[in-house]
Design a protein around this nucleic acid. Structure first.
Ligand SMILES: [Zn+2]
Ligand SMILES: [Zn+2]
Ligand SMILES: [Zn+2]
Ligand SMILES: [Zn+2]
Lengths: 162, 162
DNA sequence: CCCGAGACGTAATAACATAACATGCACCAG
DNA sequence: CTGGTGCATGTTATGTTATTACGTCTCGGG
């Protein structure tokens, strides 16, 4: 079990938080959005952890840093970040995770390891999407899709075999 | 992918509840599972409604019928039904719905209309599954997948245009 | 008869999420 | 400058979803 997986590999974590926050900052400025202190801090928290956190986990850290301590503080920040694509909600876990591919418009797919709790965000090809095909044949117009899979990550599979 | 979502068409509802319950009964007997009165009634409730119900909605109806009135009563019945494929949980809605294609082993995909609340269950072709491909390239072993899309159903699209 | 597994019931609590309302501040029209 | 509007933030209170813990009953095998 491995505390720092992006995807399921280790990586040097030192710069990615700052980089991602800077990118979000830029992106918000361009779009006329306000990446306020709470929102920015919430994003940082998720990036630092690099895993799925519950809203109350985020809230506790925000409160430590002097922000409000009531649920709406966290939920509002997370709503903003989710709405604008900087963060995704993992429905299966009722938890939030920083987007691993921000900027691009995408429908993420998540792989959730039930052994080590790691969550990887995979890119999907929208044109080949299963759901897109279904939608086409049924006449349904999709606005948002959720793709999540629970299972065992490569690392934990390897450990099992030993 | 086999597109047969019974979700967005009207259909004669009179026999499908009894049929589905009978099928579940048979299936449980074969598998050595106990489809006890609470469990059977919970399944009936979901079939009768033919839509996604929250656990507490199911619980209220079970209580009306003389079963226990505390949350675990509903959650245990729903866990059983979900575990054995008679019912699916819609993660986006925190709600449960009777399986529209019971018996077959399948990974369902759900189309959720945000206008009329209808939920359709579509079959997916496991071999073309997006997630299966991702899993293959990353070495992740999938045990359960969640595929859900929010949007507008054909009926509501038609109404919009008028 | 005794035992263990599993189904069911209750009480209590945890975990997740939103409603409703008040304050402060930037911005702009008058 | 001033009043008003929009929006972000904060708080209190409450609503919704889910689980833990524990006692009872029943059914079968030894
Ligand atoms: Zn993403
Ligand atoms: Zn793992
Ligand atoms: Zn199904
Ligand atoms: Zn509809």
């Amino acid at each position: 079990m491995d505390p720092n997986p992006i995807g399921f590999q280790h990586h040097d974590h030192s710069h990615c938080v700052a980089d991602a926050v800077a990118a979000a900052d830029r992106s918000c400025r361009e779009a006329g959005l306000q990446l306020t202190p709470v929102r920015k801090r919430a994003l940082e928290i998720l990036l630092e952890e690099h895993r799925a956190l519950g809203a109350y986990d985020v809230l506790a850290r925000l409160a430590e840093d002097g922000f409000g301590s009531q649920p709406p503080v966290a939920y509002r920040a997370l709503d903003f970040l989710t709405k604008h694509g900087f963060v995704h909600k993992i429905e299966k876990l009722n938890a939030f995770i920083a987007c691993a591919h921000p900027g691009e418009l995408h429908t993420p797919a998540f792989l959730i390891c039930t052994t080590c709790q790691a969550v990887a965000e995979a890119e999907t090809d929208p044109s080949h999407s299963l759901l897109a095909n279904i939608a086409e044949t049924t006449g349904f117009r999709i606005s948002r899709a959720v793709l999540e899979a629970e299972g065992t990550c490569p690392n934990c599979l390897a450990s099992e075999k030993r």
